[in-house]
Design a protein around this nucleic acid. Structure first.
Length: 470
RNA sequence: GGCGCUAUCGUCUAGUGGCCUAGGACACAGCCCUCUCAAGGCUGGUACACGGGUUCGAAUCCCGUUAGCGCUACCA
């Protein structure tokens, strides 16, 4: 059996949305799993809405996600000669016909149908011009569109995710395949390209199922075997409606900005509409590829749950070594306006366990290297108030005890017993000593264990913050 | 309206006729651990849309109902 050839074919009329990203991912998983080829094709035939900037954003989004293409990117607009040749071949074959009706004339019919409440249907019998009129327009060299003559037969296919889906030709209109300006309409262009690119598996969104019978009819008329179709479900917003701008973040770039790791995004998207058939949730790339199959793709749409994405991102943050987080953290730090020559790895190491996004992680790092970012929050202030004069006196005690520690002994393992001893000497609970220090160093009542915090902030800086707070 | 698709916890899902008084994860609540917060461990509540069949047996198969979604362009 020859290896499969799949394609991802976005139109550059907007950003790369999570739905499209997931479709790309499923194609990519399938290609990698089967040793097939992933073709990237930009469907830019809508001249009005397509832009190079959008194309670039899509390419960047795919790259960020780790989706690589083996061929392309090809631009559909460049293939119009082929599309047109195929459409004209259909004409010669008698499977399509010239339609001299102008768009304006058609609109009259459509408006009439609407006014009378009758659903509009294009029918060869009633819409066609009289033979005389056709001859007259033809002689005058009037422009014409080419319509495909849909056969009155069953068009069914065995969808790789839905199973058998069946349509009747009589329920479909004779759709236009070539505009009067000589450019191809979507369904014609897709079929023409997919044939030319020898695509074997069309994995795309559910919103295309109604295009599929039209495309199959085209394959048959052109004398080509149709590919295998797999229609993957849509992604919905929290309200169960199709994901759109008003749901907030919908583009993959938004999640990148939010501090989501590509690996986490890939894992999360994979599990949205597909499952490995077991209880496993955290699946590294290699595992995803090895286990991916169309048979376990869900038939129903899935709601995009940002909370679970962030949980998963937190899992990735915890298990990734600090070294791999260095670059993304530095980028976020730059956005925060923080520059430092310090080795950030030890800080990232302790802070990543409590972070769900790179953004939050970077803020925590910034707080530890930049004293000016220490601002006492509500709980920190409440603690200081609750302890009253003890707050300052505990800090002074801590300061003097910690001052005795030499720079070489300044590490979490050595600091911990010292602080415990201090609490014991004072007859205070450990928390009574630790919390004021935490507030002095971070402004908040939440952080990594205090000895680690002190170690990470450093001796001189820690002492300075202690002194400033007491 | 027509055609098509879909229907398991709030959400993502396991389930492909008996292993299901329905399993896991996120979220939520409680407890443990503990200097705080996470993480981790334990516990808890919450689901097979409804109605008919088929079968010894149905979340799983069939039919109908209901609901949701998609398409119904010289857009993609």
């Amino acid at each position: 059996m020859t290896p499969p050839r799949v394609r991802f074919a976005p139109s550059p009329t907007g950003y790369l949305h999570v739905g499209g990203a997931r479709t790309a991912l499923f194609n990519w998983f399938y290609a990698k799993h089967t040793g097939g080829t992933f073709v990237l094709r930009i469907e830019d035939t809508d001249q009005q809405r397509s832009t190079d900037a959008h194309t670039q954003v899509i390419l960047d989004g795919l790259t960020w996600l780790g989706v690589t293409w083996d061929e392309g990117p090809f631009f559909q607009g460049a293939n119009n000669a082929q599309h047109r040749a195929d459409a004209e071949r259909l004409l010669t074959l008698g499977r399509a016909y010239k339609d001299y009706l102008t768009a304006a004339e058609l609109e009259v019919h459509r408006a009439h149908a609407k006014a009378t409440g009758v659903p509009f249907r294009f029918t060869r019998a009633t819409m066609n011009l009289s033979a005389d009129e056709v001859a007259r327009r033809e002689a005058a060299g009037a422009p014409y569109a080419i319509r495909f003559a849909i056969p009155d037969e069953e068009i069914a296919w065995d969808d790789a995710v839905h199973g058998r889906i069946s349509w009747q030709g009589r329920d479909m209109d004779d759709f236009i395949i070539l505009r009067s300006d000589g450019t191809a309409i979507y369904n014609m262009a897709v079929v023409s390209d997919d044939i030319a690119m020898r695509i074997t598996h069309v994995i795309r969104g559910d919103d295309h199922v109604s295009n599929t019978p039209k495309q199959i009819a085209l394959y048959r008329a052109l004398g080509h075997a149709e590919p295998i179709f797999a229609h993957v479900p849509m992604i919905l917003g929290a309200d169960g409606k199709k994901l759109s701008k008003r749901h907030g973040a919908t583009a993959v770039g938004d999640y990148q900005d939010m501090g989501i790791l590509p690996g986490a995004m890939r894992n999360f998207l994979a599990l949205l509409g597909w499952s490995p058939g077991s209880n496993d949730e955290i699946l590294p790339e290699a595992e995803l590829i090895a286990r991916f199959d169309l048979g376990h793709v869900q038939k129903k749409p899935a709601v995009f749950d940002t909370t679970k994405l962030e949980w998963m991102n937190g899992q990735y943050l915890s298990m990734l070594p600090a070294a791999e987080l260095l670059d993304p953290v530095r980028r976020q730090l730059a956005l925060l306006g923080v520059t430092t020559t310090r080795d950030l790895s030890p800080i990232i190491e302790v802070v990543k366990l409590r972070s769900r996004t790179i953004t939050h992680l970077a803020e925590q790092v910034a707080l530890r290297v930049d004293a000016s970012r220490v601002v006492r929050d509500a709980k920190g202030a409440a603690l200081a108030e609750k302890l009253g004069p003890k707050f300052a006196s505990y800090l002074e005690l801590a300061h003097s005890a910690l001052s005795a520690v030499t720079p070489t002994e300044w590490n979490a393992a050595a600091l911990e017993p010292l602080l415990k001893q201090l609490a014991e000497n004072e007859g205070a609970k450990l928390g009574d000593i630790m919390q004021p220090i935490r507030v002095a160093l971070t402004g908040s009542t939440v952080s990594e264990p205090v000895p680690e915090l002190l170690a990470v902030v450093g001796r001189d800086e820690s002492l300075a913050r202690l002194a400033a707070a007491s």
